[in-house]
């Protein structure tokens, strides 16, 4: 598998400085090993601590059941499901799998092609609720969203994106990404469905997220 790698930057939160990162246009075995060996132990330990502290279930990380190896295997070889990841300091910082076969629902774009984000996840140490004091790197989610917009544009979809959000991420997609919240989707576990129009994509990119 050939992987295209682009240069990018993340913010090292503790140092307050930009650090070099890479955007890969594939999730490879290397990322899955990082997920198994580095992400999962941190996540498991955090969830156990939360449970021991009596934190209610609804507040536990909602993506904790995601199995990236199974997802990667399920979509392996599928032309409609490209994947992306962010690497920094030799470690996988975020992963994303998209789908090219979805249609827009928002009235102004209804029926037009978009890039649907099947899964997008940040490494546990970069998530605010995981890190004991502060996230290690900021900007991973935005970098993956930019990659999705760029891919949408390359495909002629003009930056249109769609996704179903876990409840803990609704605010981020709505406020930070400026996507339109089309409300709960009864056909998809009542998760909120969000879309980004070409104009919203332009705004997101212009903000320099």
């Amino acid at each position: 598998m050939s992987v295209e790698i682009s240069s990018a930057f993340l913010l090292d939160v503790a140092a307050g400085q930009a650090v070099a990162a890479e955007l890969w246009d594939a999730v490879t075995e290397q990322q899955l090993v990082h997920w198994e060996d580095e992400w999962m132990p941190v996540q498991r330990e955090f969830v156990e601590r939360m449970k021991a502290a009596g934190v209610e279930r609804a507040l536990l990380p909602q993506s904790r059941h995601w199995d990236w190896r199974r997802k990667a295997e399920a979509f392996s070889g599928s032309l409609a499901n490209p994947s992306f990841c962010v690497m920094c300091q030799g470690m996988t910082q975020g992963m994303m799998i998209v789908n090219t076969l979805h249609k827009a629902r928002v009235a102004s774009q209804a029926g037009k092609e978009l890039i649907y984000i099947e899964y997008l996840e940040n490494a546990p140490w970069n998530r605010r609720h995981f890190a004991s004091d502060q996230p290690r790197f900021a900007g991973v989610g935005s970098l993956l969203m930019r990659a999705a917009i760029e891919f949408s544009r390359e495909e002629g979809f003009k930056g249109r994106l769609g996704l179903h959000s876990l409840p803990q991420s609704n605010g981020w997609y709505s406020n930070a990404c400026g996507m339109t919240d089309l409300g709960t989707d009864a056909d998809y576990q009542n998760l909120h469905y969000f879309e980004m129009t070409p104009e919203q994509a332009d705004t997101f990119i212009a903000k320099g997220n």
Binding site: S78, L79, A80, T100, L101, E113, E155, G156
Partner: peptide, 13 residues
Amino acid sequence: TAVLRQALRLYQT
């Protein structure tokens, strides 16, 4: 090109 690429993806899926 974009239409044919989408068609190929759909066919493969």
